[in-house]
Nucleic acid binder design. Sequence first.
DNA 1: TATGAATGAGCTTTCATTCAT
DNA 2: AATGAATGAAAGCTCATTCAT
Lengths: 212, 212, 212, 212
Amino acid sequence: MPNSGRKEREQTRHRQEILTAAENVFVRKGFFNTTMNEIARAAEFGVGTIYQYFSSKEELYATLILERTDEIMDALILSARKAPDPIGKIKTLINEQLKIFDANKGFIRLMAAEIDTPTSPEETRSRLRSEIDSTYQRFLEAIEKIFSEGIKLGVFRNFPPRKMTVALQGIVTGFVSEWYRSGFQEKLSDNSDLILKIFFDSLEIPPGRENK
Amino acid sequence: MPNSGRKEREQTRHRQEILTAAENVFVRKGFFNTTMNEIARAAEFGVGTIYQYFSSKEELYATLILERTDEIMDALILSARKAPDPIGKIKTLINEQLKIFDANKGFIRLMAAEIDTPTSPEETRSRLRSEIDSTYQRFLEAIEKIFSEGIKLGVFRNFPPRKMTVALQGIVTGFVSEWYRSGFQEKLSDNSDLILKIFFDSLEIPPGRENK
Amino acid sequence: MPNSGRKEREQTRHRQEILTAAENVFVRKGFFNTTMNEIARAAEFGVGTIYQYFSSKEELYATLILERTDEIMDALILSARKAPDPIGKIKTLINEQLKIFDANKGFIRLMAAEIDTPTSPEETRSRLRSEIDSTYQRFLEAIEKIFSEGIKLGVFRNFPPRKMTVALQGIVTGFVSEWYRSGFQEKLSDNSDLILKIFFDSLEIPPGRENK
Amino acid sequence: MPNSGRKEREQTRHRQEILTAAENVFVRKGFFNTTMNEIARAAEFGVGTIYQYFSSKEELYATLILERTDEIMDALILSARKAPDPIGKIKTLINEQLKIFDANKGFIRLMAAEIDTPTSPEETRSRLRSEIDSTYQRFLEAIEKIFSEGIKLGVFRNFPPRKMTVALQGIVTGFVSEWYRSGFQEKLSDNSDLILKIFFDSLEIPPGRENK
DNA sequence: TATGAATGAGCTTTCATTCAT
DNA sequence: AATGAATGAAAGCTCATTCAT
């Protein structure tokens, strides 16, 4: 089958086109205010075609969020491995995170909404919520491990690693919010030094003040 | 008009009942998944009655969010005044904030969603978004002022006060998210010391290391 | 509550109007070719109103078929009681049946289709099918009992009563089909004597030829 | 064109395979609940291929019903010719009919639905309906002729032959319905003696009681 | 000839809103 | 002032049919 590969590739491309078009519309109007017809128009396909690739509006949305979130989280977790010591890992992580966010302005918006808006059992879309949440948890746990390691090595104060993680990510999230609020006036990643300084100057134990 | 007072009071009470009922339903199901009929049933009024107090679902929602957000933000801003010095102000602020959030679990959820989910001009509810945003900005600016003052007094490092504010509120938001994620396992306000330690130990300038 | 009765009565009337309009359309175009908009137009209500009375197209259809079928079957079973002897009962039953069918040309069509088209487990509408079937079974069993009684009394041959019932109703159904096919050329009930003669001349035992 | 024969034969085979697959699906799910994709899948062809053999879903369905109905009716009409006298003809006809129905459980269901459910002018499929009806009429007329002949020969009572036909086929249909209802518990053809007894004992004129 | 991805008209259903009572 | 039955625009989704390969 010499050209069955081409068809397959075309399928994959169409799927991607739909996801991209959907992302644009969802980012602009939100899940509920976006109609399947709008997405179809944006993707330059018929509505029916969308439904050949995704079984429902929800599934399309969930796929969009999850695929990209997975990608981003995995990339971040991996990036942290590059540095040898805990402090370096955290620094890399923050740097990479801000860079990726810079490069994915639109999408980050959707992702943030899904991660931060707390779920309730009655709400629909709960499968999406729990999947995205577990992806995000994986990410948080990876950071947690870095803190634990740093504490063991005596380079971080002995605060609960989970809480340190929560605080660090909180700061990042705060800067992201501000960045949106300001309409992306500055590059998000220009803040990485500041974030690290605010966060680290306290956590890094100065030589001579041992961890006890 | 002797009993116009009673009538008026009854009106106000009804309005409040509707808002409370609406809050409960919105918290449980979100804006889009909540129907006016559900709210009416919860409020034990007819749908028509709801429309005599609020001109649309949007307006009801916006009123709900804005009135309570205003209240909360004003209370917080005021609370900060109680302490004489900048550090005390910040401490009080965080303490009060966590206590208020503890006491308003449900509502905070809605408020957070509206504050944190970035807006786009095309989305409906954008008027609500911009109003809530400006309320929140007022709050942030109040904190900013505390930092500016602290810097001038030489008790805080010379970081941009806006950024410090953003970082501090980010940490708080991070803890709130975690608190939701964990299903309110611990009291949110139990974290206030830790938050302050994480944040302050770096920002507060140790005696002897002047700000230069 | 003096006039709550009026509202209730109005509700019931509207429900009936919808059922009648739906019957007309369903009879003309069949279940699948009928749209809810057509029914609404025929009933002179908005589509939404239809859905306040019936939760779905299926439920509307099922209600329509079942309510009227129940009525008709009950009337028939009762009518048979009027005659004292088995032969008289059967005669009354056939007479009444044909008269009722004459008077319900349109509806009978729907009913017949639902009764005669055998169901399969995979098919939707199976609840309707099983309910209508049990109503019809009640009817057949009532006839069966008449035959059993007649056999015991020695006025009918000793054929299995169920089979006699099936044969008798088969003949009736055959005449009904022919009546439709011919576009209602003659009154259906004009055939009752002939049906009874064809059926009874054999089943009724001539005096002197005892049942053994 | 040396192998045009093979090609042609292959075409015919494909057509048959499609018809058989379609029959299975239609029998299970009915006309409206069956999709062309399901048929294609069942036939192991692409949808497009189905459309090369049949111009529409309707035409496929109509062809299916008509071809087989024609076959069955023709076989029945022919079978009656085997017997020399009218009574023998009717007996053969009933016997054959029940045997054929036994052997075509699934299909009979579709056929019955199309024959018995009366048509309305507005319904789609009305062309199919009128064609199947005329086929069935041909069948009924053949039976009618047997009765006419029997009356002329003095072996049947002088009832209108058309009505006798209708009654007889009604009985058969009644037994078929019961057979379906019971889930094919007994063989349908086991009932042929009983049917004939119920029907004939009255219509056949006992020797000595001339038709006058 | 066989294919199945693409299509979009048209369906059922929902729900914010109105208005006669 | 309070009601809730009535409304119909608009949504998500299906599926017979087409056509480029």
